[in-house]
């Protein structure tokens, strides 16, 4: 008896807010690992057109001949898309729960944070910030992957797409805004994911927050270096 009740309780706990948040943390982690790999790839632009186009060509050959051409890339794309969908689903589910837990009619007349404003801002912008990041991901894929949006001219060479696009100031500006949003999202997100997965312990919180700050900053800067280098003519 006691055991079957516990089994039932366990399956209920699979739908709990903690489980939702863990799904968000794991999928967020997958996306962060992807971002780091992606950033590394982008920096190859400094090796010149050949190196960059070779790299772009290479990722389509991973696993050949076991996998068809572009096969590994498609597996990665499916995993990333699934991660993004699960991540967003969990985010909206928790958002809805929070709205129900304190509906608009019960909002405080006066509200003040007891924490430092910068940290609070990062934590509080996770939801709308996440929506901005999602919109950016769509724009970005249309721009550099499918080339449906081609400011500065479309091209079959990934290197030329990049250079054509980032010579235009407002393209660089749009990426700047998006990457600051990503950086903010990850500043809280990386700490939050580690805490959610049980890594936070007494005396470790500062270290975890530091790791989150460093990784978030590295990703933001690492992604911004190529566009700005192109804008300022260091790469052409």
């Amino acid at each position: 008896m006691a055991n079957s009740t516990l089994t039932k309780q366990r399956s209920a706990a699979l739908q709990s807010s903690v489980a939702l948040k863990s799904a968000m943390a794991v999928t967020g982690g997958i996306l962060v690992l992807f971002l780091i790999a992606h950033m590394y790839g982008n920096l190859m632009v400094f090796g010149g057109q050949e190196a960059f186009d070779d790299y772009s060509h290479h990722i389509r050959e991973i696993g050949e001949p076991m996998l068809p051409h572009g096969g590994a890339l498609w597996i990665i794309r499916v995993v990333l898309l699934a991660s993004l969908l699960i991540h967003a689903y969990a985010a909206f589910a928790l958002w809805a729960r929070a709205k129900h837990a304190r509906p608009a009619a019960q909002r405080y007349v006066v509200r003040k944070s007891a924490q430092s404003p910068s940290r609070r801002y990062a934590a509080q912008t996770m939801r709308w910030g996440g929506v901005i990041v999602a919109l950016f991901v769509i724009y970005h894929i249309l721009h550099l992957t499918t080339n449906h949006i081609a400011p500065g001219g479309a091209s079959d060479s990934p290197y030329e797409r990049l250079v054509n696009g980032f010579q235009i100031w407002w393209v660089v500006l749009s990426y700047l805004i998006a990457l600051l949003a990503v950086g903010y999202h990850l500043w809280h997100g990386i700490f939050s994911a580690l805490a959610t997965l049980g890594v936070n312990k007494a005396g470790r919180e500062r270290a975890l927050r530091l790791i989150a700050t460093v990784v978030a900053a590295a990703i933001t800067v690492g992604f911004l270096v190529p566009p700005f280098s192109i804008l300022f003519g260091l790469v052409s």
Binding site: S17, V18, L20, K21, L94, R97, A98, H100, A101, R102, S113, A114, Q115, R119, R120, A123, Q124, M126, H188, F191, S192, A195, T196, G198, V199, N200, K201, A202, R204, E205
Partner: peptide, 25 residues
């Protein structure tokens, strides 16, 4: 019908007994 935690940390900042955020972890 409590909401889910997203590790914001306002709780630990106001707790009169100093319960640390890492207990949630």
């Amino acid at each position: 019908e409590f909401g889910g935690c997203t590790n914001i940390g306002e709780c630990a900042a106001v707790c009169p007994k100093g319960i640390p955020l890492d207990t949630i972890s």
